[in-house]
Write a protein that binds this DNA or RNA. Structure first.
Length: 501
RNA sequence: GACCCGGUAGCUCAGCAGGUAGAGCACCUGACUUUUAAUCAGGGGGCCGCGGGUUCGAAUCCCGCCCGGGUCACCA
């Protein structure tokens, strides 16, 4: 059926060309988009009224079509919405009308010129005086009423999802608006957007398994970055004081509703600031973004109201775990931590102190729903954070937790090269003990610190996870336009008939 | 990686006590100048995910595999 349909459409394209009509145009003067037209005329017009002097020219994809013989109604969709269009034989002429009737189908992209009116039933409509086929579709669209439901097709052919499910297009518009708001906010505060390498010799800045690739010119293996942190700090050493980078990072790990091997982070470094300054900045940034997106400080996520008004709640990791599990991550022995984990039936493949602490946190993180700063992580699990000025066992670090998920991670950056070197050594030991996610020694980074990194506050935010909240998306794949999919050997055969006749 | 659910027309889905494969939308032909899931008449369209087995006979039952979704595990 699909093949027959495609052939039919390809044949129609030939016929159009024989009639001197090119079904793939070069450009179209679009004076208004669908939203402009609604903004201008929707309130002005009553049912049955016309505004013949107001000329509009717009374009979009035909989403529905109701043919009435000598006239037809259809809806076109553009990036801003949908609008109804009315075409009538005696208005465009018999010849043009025949072209429309015979050759325009749902799915085609057309341009229309005319004037606005309101139908009997009160829907704002464009009365067509002239139209043009701008791009003829060869494949049929999914069902107009139910839309596209098949998750596999939604992820593999996102364009089709965006065409047929309006909320999908809107979701991605929101995503990119959020990113723009981040830039607006930070630029306004004097932060400069910079770039760091994607291909790196050693990974750092996070604990994750990297993707490995090969660089032919030097014949060496390289990695895709797992974070932008260590290069951004080099900028600060070099003299930049307020910088940020928004970009993809790559972690060769599992896929879940909140994990994607390729995701977007925003990292920021602010010289002469500490984690308290960063906390305030995060509150300001997020409440600003949320307000611009939703109009208030509140977001409904999966039926739960999340309030981003500041200040956010602050809890200390040690206190929170002690309160809920009765164990002290700073004072109690490894054995005691392990026993608590065993009591909760948690398996611990790697029995380092850091892993035990992380596992304990995992047990309680679900209890944090509203935006909360989780403070003062132990040194063992924070190899790049500065020790707390009042307690050297913990760091000046915080994570922003929302709905049990880590959204941001920040600290007063460790700028003591000797301490940093020792922390890296600890990580290397873990690595040698089989922890593939432990950090690598980055000697050039140490060298940079030896030239002097000013006191600096740093921050990383998971953009995708934040966008999930702002679009009420249950999985991270819903906010990544083209998520990773199994390539499968499904590549369908696409054949074009040879020219006949 | 384990378990659960699913894969039938381009799309959304039904059919599964085993007996020649269905609907709606979309498509094609015709009618219709204010419809909006337009309407009316007619028509075409299927490797029922793939491979094997049981059976006179499999979309339906059994086994294996592939792909997807979900839960858990792994994981920031």
């Amino acid at each position: 059926m699909l093949e027959e349909l495609r052939k039919q459409r390809i044949k129609e394209i030939e016929e159009l060309r024989e009639k001197g009509v090119e079904p793939f145009s070069y450009r179209y003067e679009k004076t208004h988009n669908t939203k402009d037209i609604k903004d201008l005329f929707d309130e002005k017009l009553k049912a049955g009224e016309i505004l013949e002097e107001e000329k509009v020219s717009t374009a979009g994809r035909v989403m529905s079509l109701r043919d009435h013989g000598k006239s037809a109604f259809f809806h076109i969709k553009d990036s801003e919405g949908r609008i109804q269009v009315y075409i009538r034989k005696n208005a465009v002429g018999a010849e043009r009308y025949e072209i429309f009737k015979k050759y325009v189908n749902v799915g085609d992209i057309v341009g229309v010129k005319g004037f606005p009116f309101k139908s009997k039933t009160g829907e704002l409509t464009i009365f067509v005086e002239d139209f043009e086929i701008l791009s003829k579709a060869i494949r049929p669209l999914p069902e107009k009423w139910h839309g596209l439901k098949d998750k596999e097709v939604i992820y593999r052919q996102r364009y089709l999802d965006m065409i047929s499910n309006d909320e999908s297009l809107e979701r991605f518009k929101t995503r990119y608006k959020v990113i723009r708001l981040f830039r607006d906010f930070l630029n306004e505060r004097g932060f400069i957007e910079v770039e760091t390498p994607t291909l790196v010799y050693v990974t750092g800045g996070a604990e994750a398994k990297p993707f490995v690739t090969h660089l032919n010119v030097f014949d060496i293996d390289m990695y895709l970055r797992i974070a932008t942190e260590l290069y951004l700090k080099r900028y600060i050493v070099g003299g930049f004081e307020k910088i940020y980078e928004i970009g993809k990072v790559f972690r060769n790990e599992g896929i879940s509703y909140k994990h994607s091997p390729e995701f977007t982070s925003m990292e920021l470094y602010w010289a002469y600031a500490d984690y308290n300054d960063i906390m305030e900045l995060v509150e300001d940034l997020l409440s600003y973004v949320v307000k611009e997106i939703t109009g208030s400080t509140k977001v409904m996520y999966q039926g739960v109201e999340i309030d981003f008004s500041k200040p956010f709640r602050r809890i200390k990791m040690r206190d929170f775990i002690k309160e809920h599990l009765g164990v002290d991550i700073l004072e109690d022995s490894d054995e005691k931590l392990l026993k608590v984990l065993k009591d909760h039936e948690v398996e611990v493949p790697i029995k380092s102190r850091g892993h035990l602490i992380n596992k304990l946190w995992d047990l309680v993180e679900d209890k944090v729903v509203q935006p909360t700063f989780l403070l003062e992580h132990p040194v063992e699990i924070s190899p790049l954070a500065k020790r707390h000025r009042e307690d050297p066992r913990v760091t000046e670090r915080f994570e922003l937790i929302i709905y049990g998920r880590e959204i941001a991670n920040a600290f007063s950056e460790l700028n003591d090269p000797v301490d940093q070197y020792q922390r890296f050594l600890e990580q290397v030991k873990l690595r040698e003990a089989g922890d593939e996610e432990a950090q690598m020694m980055d000697k050039d980074f140490i060298r940079a610190l030896e030239y002097g990194l000013p006191p600096t506050g740093g921050l990383g935010i998971g953009i995708d996870r934040l966008v999930m909240f702002l679009t009420d998306s249950p999985t991270i794949r819903d906010v990544i336009a083209f998520p990773l999919v199994n390539p499968k050997s499904l590549d369908e055969e696409i054949e074009y008939e040879e020219e006949v006749e």
